[in-house]
Nucleic acid binder design. Structure first.
Length: 224
DNA sequence: GTCCAGGGGA
DNA sequence: TCCCCTGGAC
């Protein structure tokens, strides 16, 4: 990996941290709630997910045992605000049944072992792709697996570090090969990326003049 | 009222 | 490539 990638990946994290301060993700009361949130937030704004999780708490079904037993049409109604509610209800229930039947609801065991193996175990489940798997590993299990999302792609393409055709795993490797393997660093970095994407580095209406990456990013100043 | 943002599967 | 869906912005 080039010196330039290493320099940019590192300095961007520092800039974002200085600008936003520590963000202390993931906002949840338990590891299982993180897992549920990771599935519900697929292709969905977090505000919609909050309502769905609120509904699950109100109904007192936010545990693998209860989600496994809940009639799926009831689950669909509870999570409806998060969108794509039919597929997400099936995904959640499938995961809850898997955890209950194969892992005795022991999330530590489920996410333990070599990182590659734990990641494969997650990816084998229906409805868990790379981003959801890495979110669960990082934010529910506290394991050093960098999360890549649409925001990461957008920001680092604008910065000039990505062309746009890279695969998920290539981008993940770019971060992991250029950063020390620290859970807290991965945790904060992804949170900072999301924060930047929601404030300055939005999809269409950008606010480059307010951006903490001014001077580093091609988008704000194509002459760099 | 229309549009927009946003992962995974087939 | 297309389908799955919502709340919020405009």
């Amino acid at each position: 990996m080039s010196f330039l990638s290493n320099y940019l990946v590192t300095i961007i994290q520092q800039r974002l941290h200085n600008h936003f301060g520590p963000l202390n993700w993931w906002p949840a009361d338990s590891p299982f709630e993180v897992i549920v949130g990771a599935i519900l937030t697929q292709n969905t704004a977090w505000t919609n997910v909050e309502q769905a999780i609120h509904n699950l708490k109100q109904a007192d079904v936010l545990s693998p045992e209860k989600l496994a037993k809940l009639p799926v049409n009831q689950l669909e109604e509870l999570i409806r605000p998060s969108g794509f509610f039919r597929q997400k209800a099936a995904r959640l229930q499938n995961l809850a049944i898997h955890l209950t039947e194969e892992w005795q609801n022991n999330l530590d065991d489920f996410c333990s072992g070599p990182l590659v193996a734990a990641r494969q175990r997650l990816l084998a489940l229906s409805g868990i792709g790379p981003e959801t798997a890495d979110s669960i590993l990082l934010y529910a299990a506290g394991r050093p697996s960098f999360v890549v999302d649409a925001y990461t792609r957008r920001i680092f393409k604008r910065v000039g570090l990505l062309k746009g055709q890279e695969s998920y795993d290539e981008i993940r490797q770019m971060f992991m090969q250029n950063l020390p393997e620290e859970v807290q660093l991965y945790n904060e970095y992804h949170a900072q990326i999301v924060q930047l994407a929601k404030t300055c580095c939005r999809k269409v209406k950008t606010f480059c003049s307010d951006c903490p990456l001014k001077g580093v990013c091609h988008h704000a100043n194509p002459s760099i």
